[in-house]
Structures are given as structure tokens and as C-alpha cells.
Design a binder for these strands. Structure first.
Lengths: 240, 240
DNA sequence: TAAATGAGAGAGAACGTTCTCTCTTTTTTG
DNA sequence: CAAAAAAGAGAGAACGTTCTCTCTCATTTA
């Protein structure tokens, strides 16, 4: 992550002078150009995220983003064709994080643990992003911002739908497997269970519990309670 | 609600010619003028809500709102001093609805039913607003919009905090009473329970379950599951 | 030296808001 | 009660600002 307070040309982080490359810092390895381009894009995205958190997608101006990135508009528009493109990119990476977490679902022994862990991982991941120089609840802000934008921006909506559909499929698959194993009451409406758990997770992320003083461990029984309540796993003691 | 397509002076709804207006200053409060003013404000707010749902708080322009209200900017600015003021008013009314629902909480016999009903009433109320000419998920849109705005707009944040604090107090009081009555496991963290239930409710509202085909009755067991799971009411069969 | 990169002015549109003016309604006055 | 005066309501052009994005030209890199 590039420091946002750096002066112009900050992206050209001057490495050791010992480099035998003339006048430049790193890597001729694979086209220094391509590397630099990637770094610049990253720089813009980081700056844009900070601005969006501060002022919202519509509220943040391109000038604001340029300042934050230590870049001129002319430079910035070389990397992104429009403000929309930046928003879409951010929405995409923001939603991508879920996929990795879900992939780890199969590691848990039973479905209740799996769900609880997925929920906790999501919240953990979200609150981990909040250690930067920005406001403490930056993840929640960006999350709500993306959701709001997805409701009127066709392409952002498409990005969200794609990833949510993927998530839903994955959860449903895990649930079905657990049902086969007899871990779930066969009467359970799995679609509803998935949707409810997603709603719970999004609600917690939106309110940003960790930033409000609720420790992550405290959330463990919350997710577990909902999971148990929804799936009613077979239990010799519980009837009804 | 006044038709927005009416020609000029449409707001001067000719009431009964029989009412003799008193010529004192009280007329300013209850007279035809005052009633007209109220109707116009209502007209603007309705138009603004439609625009905000369509384009977001920042995305909707004052011209857009003026068109929707069938009004000139000059006229509109006679009723609201700024766009901000309109946003604040909408945020306030939007959050006000919760209060009425919570007031009915004490009618339920036990705490689990009470919570379930509060949750269902919230969702019902939200989805009931969606029968207008707007998009089917307009309530969810406005809800997310208000939440997003509250994260960077001081005064909107204040409005939200006020009403959420009130809600929290009310729920906590009900929980405490139930605890006294022995309906709740004495170990339960009531603050966490309140926060979790609020998160669940907001999550469901945000995803707008009713608009997505999930009937209201289906949500009943969801709220109940979370409530039971969180509060662990004493039950001779369940241990631990 | 040719291509890539960037700075920064600024074009053109759109923004929120204000201004001026007209028309209607209400109140005061003779 | 009619005429005069004041106040209210609205239209729409116009204001200054800010927006996104482009263009020109200088600098750096290979």
C-alpha cells in the first residue's frame, strides 16, 4: 500500500542506489512499464477508496481523488477511463474477498461450525481493513456505499449479483451435503437459511460491530445461535 | 397525496367555500394558507423520495426533484432552504416509523414472541411502502441510502443515532423485564442480543426479502430462531 | 529519438442556489 | 364594501461554483 502523503512521483519509490540499473529503481525483469502501470493503478484505487469512504461515490470528486493520489487528472485518466470504471473496480475487489472465505468452508467438520466460521471470517476480514489512516469504520462505509450504488448502477449491480450468486451456490452446496449427512432437519428451507445468514452477516458488517467495541469472539455464539436455530441439527435432547 | 402532474396553482385545493377564515394570527397556524403549505411540503417530499430512490441523495439534482414535483426551483426553495434540509426531513420520517412498532412490544405475552413480532412488523412496514409507482424495492433503496448518508453527513447521523438510541433503550428495557421474569438466561449479554437482532433486522430490510419472493410468514421462524438462540430461555429439555 | 508518461490549464456541462418579476390572495384602509 | 396595500406563491433565467473529462505541451524512459 502506497503512502498517500507522498509528493509527486511518489510511485517511483527510489530503491537502493546500489542498483546497477541506470537511473531507475527496480526490475527490468518483465517490462518495468507493466509493473509501474500496475503500481499506479493500485495507487489510484487506494486513493479512491479513501475518498469514497470519506465522501461517498457521488460525493467524491475526481480532483479529490487526484489530490489523494498525488496525481494530475491527465495522469489519472491514463489509467482509468472514467470515474465509473474506478467504482466498478472497487466494487469488484470488495466483493471478491468473499470467495476466498467460502472456499475454506469445507474444512470445518460440521455444518454449524462451518457457518459460524464463514460468518466470523467475513467480519474479521472486514474489520482488518480498518487499520489504515482512514476512519475506523471504513469497511462498513464502503460496504454500504457499494450496496447503495448497486441499487441504481447497472454494472455495479451486475458485479454484486455475480458474486452473491456464487456465494449462494457455494453455501447451498454445503448445506445440501450436510443435509445428506443428516446434520440438517430435512424439512429445512435451505434457500431461506442461506438468505437469512447472508442478511445477518451483512447486517453485522453494516453496523460494524468490531469498531463499536463488540469483540469478534462475542459474535461466535450469535452466528451459532442463528445457524442452530435455522438448521435444527438433529439433537437427541431437543424435541419439536 | 397531491397529483404531481397538475398545472400551476394545483396546490390551492379549493376547500369548502363555507369555511370562514378567522383574521387573527391563529389563521396562520390553521388557515387555508397553512394547510396549503403543508400540502406543498408533502408534495416536495414525495417527489424527492422518488428521485432519491431513483438516483440517490447525491445523484438526484434539485432540477430533477423540481420536475418530479411539478414545481419551479423558485417555488421549491420557498419550502425548503436547501437540498440538505430535504434529506434530513426524509431521514427523520424514515427513522420515525420504528418508534410506533416498538411501542407495541409490551403487548406480546413472552419475550420471544415480542421480538419476533417487532422484527416482522418492521419488515412488513417496510414492504408496505413499496406499493407506489416507484420500483418494487424502493424502501430498501431509501433505507440503504439513509444509512450511507448517515456515515458522512453529521446531521443525518444525529437523526439516526437519536432514533436508534431510543430503540435500543426500549428493547433493553423489555429484555431486562423478561430477565427478571426468568424468561432469559441470566448469563445473556443483553446489549449484544439487542445489537444482533437489530443487525438481523436491518440485513433483512436491506436485502428486501418480501420483494424477492420470500413471504412474510417465512421470516417468522427466522426471527424466532435467532431470538431463542440468543436469549436461551429456560427450557427443561435443553441443557447447556 | 520515439514512445510513454505526466502536469495542469481549462472546456463544457451540470450543479445548488438566488434573483427578479408576475400573478394571486389576504389584509388594511377610507 | 370597494379600493389600496401588503404578503404569499411561483416561474424561469441567471449566478457562481464545481463537476468530469480533454487537450496541449513538457519530461522521462528505453
Amino acid at each position: 500500500m502506497v503512502d498517500q502523503a507522498l509528493p509527486k512521483q511518489a510511485a517511483n519509490i527510489s530503491a537502493d542506489a546500489a542498483d546497477d540499473e541506470p537511473r531507475c529503481f527496480v526490475a527490468k525483469l518483465f517490462g518495468k512499464r507493466a509493473r509501474n502501470r500496475e503500481a499506479q493503478e493500485e495507487r489510484i484505487l487506494t486513493a479512491a477508496m479513501n475518498c469514497f469512504i470519506r465522501s461517498g461515490f457521488r460525493g467524491a470528486s475526481m480532483n479529490e481523488i487526484c489530490s489523494e493520489a498525488g496525481m494530475s487528472p491527465g495522469a489519472l485518466y491514463r489509467y482509468f477511463p472514467s470515474k465509473e470504471a474506478i467504482i466498478e473496480k472497487i466494487a469488484a475487489t470488495h466483493r471478491h474477498q468473499s470467495a476466498e472465505i467460502l472456499a475454506r468452508m469445507s474444512q470445518s467438520k460440521n455444518i454449524i461450525d462451518a457457518i459460524t466460521n464463514v460468518g466470523l471470517d467475513h467480519v474479521r476480514k472486514m474489520s482488518m481493513n480498518d487499520q489504515g489512516p482512514g476512519p475506523r469504520d471504513s469497511s462498513a462505509r464502503l460496504f454500504v456505499e457499494v450496496r447503495a450504488e448497486s441499487m441504481r448502477n447497472e454494472s455495479v449491480a451486475g458485479i454484486c449479483d455475480l458474486h452473491e450468486g456464487l456465494m449462494r451456490e457455494e453455501l447451498l452446496a454445503a448445506f445440501s451435503a450436510a443435509k445428506e449427512r443428516g446434520e440438517i432437519d430435512p424439512v429445512t428451507d435451505l434457500e431461506l437459511a442461506v438468505a437469512s445468514l447472508a442478511a445477518m452477516g451483512e447486517g453485522i458488517i453494516m453496523r460494524n460491530f468490531p469498531a463499536q467495541g463488540v469483540p469478534l469472539e462475542a459474535l461466535e455464539p450469535v452466528f451459532r445461535a442463528l445457524a442452530v436455530g435455522l438448521l435444527r441439527p438433529t439433537n437427541p435432547l431437543a424435541n419439536k
